[in-house]
Write a protein that binds this DNA or RNA. Structure first.
Lengths: 249, 249
DNA sequence: TTTGAAAGTGTATTAAGGACACAAAGTAAA
DNA sequence: TTTACTTTGTGTCCTTAATACACTTTCAAA
């Protein structure tokens, strides 16, 4: 089995367990996912960023590590979707690290633990890492094919995000500090994949009392500039602490 | 690595991946979980039924197999909760199968994929299997300690079930064919861990139009006998097919 | 100064949620 | 056979949330 020295400790790759991340980003128009082109030849479908885990880390740590290693992203909203893996995942043969690990353990198969994460697209800057130089944002609507079972994972991730945002206001993780209500509105529409009435949306979100109007407006737009808002994390945490979990849509 | 012959095929245990099942049952009063006493000595905490997976099966199959092998349960409602596993799960040292597998692969650790399942308690008859002869139903309220990280898994399972039943009428899996509205009412209260007004509950559940009144009443009870109902699966599937997913509480 | 484009705002109607109390139907015990 | 006991089964009022819907305002650009 492949061994690596990290921080003066002998750690080992586990050839049976990987993590894959569905990294969502919002460009103010639609929802996107960060995908990796692992093809050395043409025609190989894109894949979710992921990697094998080390025996020395727990699953959440492994997902964080993958986010950081492959996309340079730190302190990111992460949520486990679940485990995937039928024996066919053994077809993951383009992953070099996996190949090495397999040499020692040829009969094993991989299961993967999938996560979704929400990032501000501006926070992502393409890395020089061998993996991520081939990474790019793709609109979720346009994705019809992915490597391995990643399309199934993406579908589950979308559903999971939908359910989650109907209970908790996690959408703010996809927006910059300052945002407009229209941006938030489009964000909810993108995630829920259905139109929401503008006035009803605004009334509802403002009634939740977790966003705060800033004394500042949008600039340089060729139309009436919008009021800017920010998410009030303190108020939100206060509400959840007293058991409130109906930020629903 | 340990090899076993099943149905004329060579299959292998994967020493890194197990499944554990939170098997819920309802005794018309409260929610129970089927736990296994793996202790040869006294004082060893109870555990969730679970086992290592074979490389030849997928995760859902493995969970079904465990349900059948350990509890004799077939065709049971199963739902994945998620994957658990930090390196400390390596303490799972009382599991003999695992010990054997570890001999070949001493440095590996186990992650577990957890499921919850809903069964009619009457369907469960203690098995003669070496595992399950030590199985018993325990009220979820009374559980304060479990082996390994199983308490964490149980907590997640309870939360998962709560969320799920607020969207989909899966509670019927815990009840016999014919049941009373009071039984259903207590079931919802047990799962949601909060009182629900009797009349409001009845109005709401009947409005969903997925239960059907039978021309039959309870017998032999020392009070006014209750009308019996059954779950109308066809109507429910029709509703979900057209996108309705608000069976909420 | 006109045009285009998105922001921002209120009301009326309908549906759902929550609180609440008493008569009816059976068995068991006196 | 009467009484006590226990659980079933039912309706209304009030409050809150959801939905449908259209016009004026404000800025930049032409």
């Amino acid at each position: 089995m492949k061994k690596k020295v990290i921080k003066n400790k002998l750690v080992e790759l586990n050839p049976n367990v990987s993590v894959d991340c569905v990294i969502f980003g919002f460009d103010f128009e639609k929802l996107n996912v960060l995908l990796i082109d692992r093809g050395t030849t043409l025609g190989i479908p894109l894949a979710l960023p992921g990697n094998l885990i080390y025996n020395s880390e727990n699953l959440d740590e492994a997902a964080s590590r993958v986010l950081e290693e492959l996309a340079g992203l730190k302190n990111i909203y992460l949520e486990q979707i679940g485990a995937f893996g039928d024996p066919l995942r053994i077809t993951k043969i383009t992953d070099q690290e996996w190949l090495k690990a397999m040499r020692a353990e040829p009969s094993a198969r991989v299961i993967t633990v999938a996560y979704f994460s929400l990032v501000k697209m501006s926070d992502y800057v393409p890395q020089a890492s061998s993996f991520a130089k081939n990474a790019s944002w793709v609109s979720v609507q346009e994705i019809t094919e992915l490597a391995f079972d990643h399309l199934e994972i993406l579908t589950t991730a979308k559903e999971s995000l939908k359910q989650k945002i109907r209970r908790q206001p996690i959408g703010f993780n996809l927006l910059p500090e300052k945002f407009t209500l229209s941006q938030l509105h489009r964000l909810y529409e993108s995630i829920l994949e259905k139109p929401l009435d503008k006035r009803n949306f605004r009334r509802k979100i403002q009634k939740l009392d977790i966003i705060e109007s800033l004394k500042e407006k949008q600039k340089g737009v060729p139309h009436k500039p919008s009021q800017l808002f920010k998410f009030n994390k303190e108020k939100y945490e206060l509400l959840t602490k007293i058991g409130f979990d109906n930020f629903g849509f």
